[in-house]
C-alpha cells in the first residue's frame, strides 16, 4: 500500500493509504481530525476546505498521495496552543456567523485564505464572490460576510478588536 508523509497542524505523520484515498479521508479516518467535513460529492460545498502551504484547497478533491511533503492546516490547527482563537474564529462567534456549524470549518479556512490574498482589504462584493466555493444553508451568509470583513480589519491592523458596535 502507498505511504504518504505530510505535516498536519505542525505534526509530521507517515500514513499508509490506498492510492484512491482522499486527503479528507486521511484526515478524518486515519488522523481522526473530524473538524474537516464532507458535505457533497461534486467538489462544491467547501465544508472540507483546509490549507496546503497556506492556500485553501478542498480536501475532498485531492488524493492523499498528492500531499507528499505537504504542510496542511485544518480547523483544529488554527487556535494557538493556549486556546486563543484565530481572529477569524473569534469574528465568526462575535458576528453569529454560524448556526449548525457544519460548513463552519471550511468557511473559516476559506475566509482566512481570502483575507490573506487581499492584503489591502476587501469590499462586501469581493467577500461574497470570494466565498463562491463554500455553501452555507443556515445563515444566508449575511453574518459570515460581516464576520470576514471584521476579521480582515483586525488581521490587517485596521482595527484593534472584533467587538460589534453596541446594539
Amino acid at each position: 500500500m502507498p505511504q504518504v508523509t505530510l505535516t498536519v497542524n505542525g505534526t509530521k505523520h507517515t500514513v499508509e493509504v490506498e492510492a484512491r484515498t482522499l486527503l479528507v479521508e486521511l484526515l478524518r479516518e486515519k488522523l481522526r481530525l473530524t473538524g474537516t467535513h464532507v458535505g457533497c460529492d461534486t467538489s462544491q460545498c467547501g465544508a472540507c476546505v483546509v490549507h496546503m502551504g497556506g492556500d485553501s484547497i478542498k480536501a475532498c478533491t485531492i488524493l492523499a498521495v498528492q500531499c507528499e511533503g505537504a504542510d496542511i492546516t485544518t480547523i483544529e490547527g488554527l487556535a494557538k496552543p493556549d486556546g486563543t482563537l484565530h481572529p477569524m474564529q473569534e469574528a465568526f462567534r462575535e458576528y453569529h456567523a454560524l448556526q449548525c456549524g457544519f460548513c463552519t470549518p471550511g468557511m473559516v479556512m476559506s475566509a482566512i485564505d481570502l483575507v490573506n490574498k487581499h492584503p489591502g482589504g476587501l469590499s462586501e462584493q469581493e467577500i461574497r464572490e470570494g466565498l463562491e466555493g463554500n455553501l452555507c444553508r443556515c445563515t444566508g451568509y449575511h453574518n459570515i460576510v460581516k464576520a470576514i470583513a471584521a476579521a480582515a480589519d483586525v488581521m490587517q491592523g485596521r482595527r484593534s478588536e472584533l467587538a460589534r458596535a453596541a446594539e
Binding site: R28, R32, L33, T34, G35, T36, H37, V38, T74, I75, E76, L78, A79, L85, Q89, F92, R93, E94, H96, L98, G101, F102, T104, P105, V108, E167
Partner: peptide, 23 residues
C-alpha cells in the same frame, strides 16, 4: 440579550460531534 452562543466554541475549533464524526 444578544448573548454570543455557548455552542460556538466547539464548532469553531473543529470539535463538533456530528454523526459521521463518531466511530
Amino acid at each position: 440579550a444578544s448573548v454570543r452562543r455557548k455552542e460556538d466554541l466547539r464548532f469553531l475549533s473543529g470539535r463538533g460531534q456530528y454523526t459521521d464524526d463518531i466511530n
